[in-house]
């Protein structure tokens, strides 16, 4: 991954920073600057809670370059509590236990390594939701 591309997307990858539309209140992730619902300009930052549930999932057995050593790994579409769908890997879970509708929460993990001397790319993954301490 290129350094500049890594740097300019850290907000969304580390903190789930998206946007909220000042016109219709739609919450947007990933950030896209124009509301897909009402087409109004939407540049107001909004940080998502990271809570959601599994909308769909798949376990990958044949990986793209750079992900071979993680096989098998499970990817998912997660419906965030605030509305948008997000694509991410699931972690800390046995593949066979994943179900549509399972509550999950965002954590920060290594997404990939670009070789021994390359960058470690960190970003969001989702794990089964842990009950919050009292």
């Amino acid at each position: 991954m290129e350094v500049a591309r890594f740097w300019r997307t850290t907000g969304q990858r580390y903190q789930l920073t998206g946007e909220i539309c000042p016109n219709c209140g739609n919450k947007i992730f990933p950030p896209r600057d124009v509301c897909p619902t009402c087409e109004h300009e939407a540049k107001t930052a909004y940080t998502f809670s990271g809570k959601g549930e599994v909308y769909s999932y798949s376990t990958i057995h044949a990986a793209p370059e750079g992900f071979e050593k993680y096989v098998p790994y499970t990817v998912a579409l997660v419906r965030l509590q605030e509305g948008p769908l997000i694509t991410a890997q699931l972690t800390d879970v046995d593949t066979h236990e994943v179900k549509v509708g399972m509550p999950v929460e965002m954590v920060t993990r290594v997404l990939r390594e670009d070789g021994e001397r390359g960058m470690l790319v960190y970003g969001y993954k989702f794990r089964p939701a842990v009950a919050s301490p009292r």
């Binding site: 991954m1 909308y55 769909s56 999932y57 798949s58 990958i60 044949a62 990986a63 793209p64 992900f67 993680y70 790994y73 990817v75 998912a76 579409l77 694509t87 991410a88 890997q89 549509v100 997404l111 990939r112 790319v121 970003g123």
Partner: peptide, 16 residues
Amino acid sequence: LHGLSFVSINALLMRR
């Protein structure tokens, strides 16, 4: 960037 292959994107659709 999250390791999705094209096959897996279709798998997400098929599962749902």
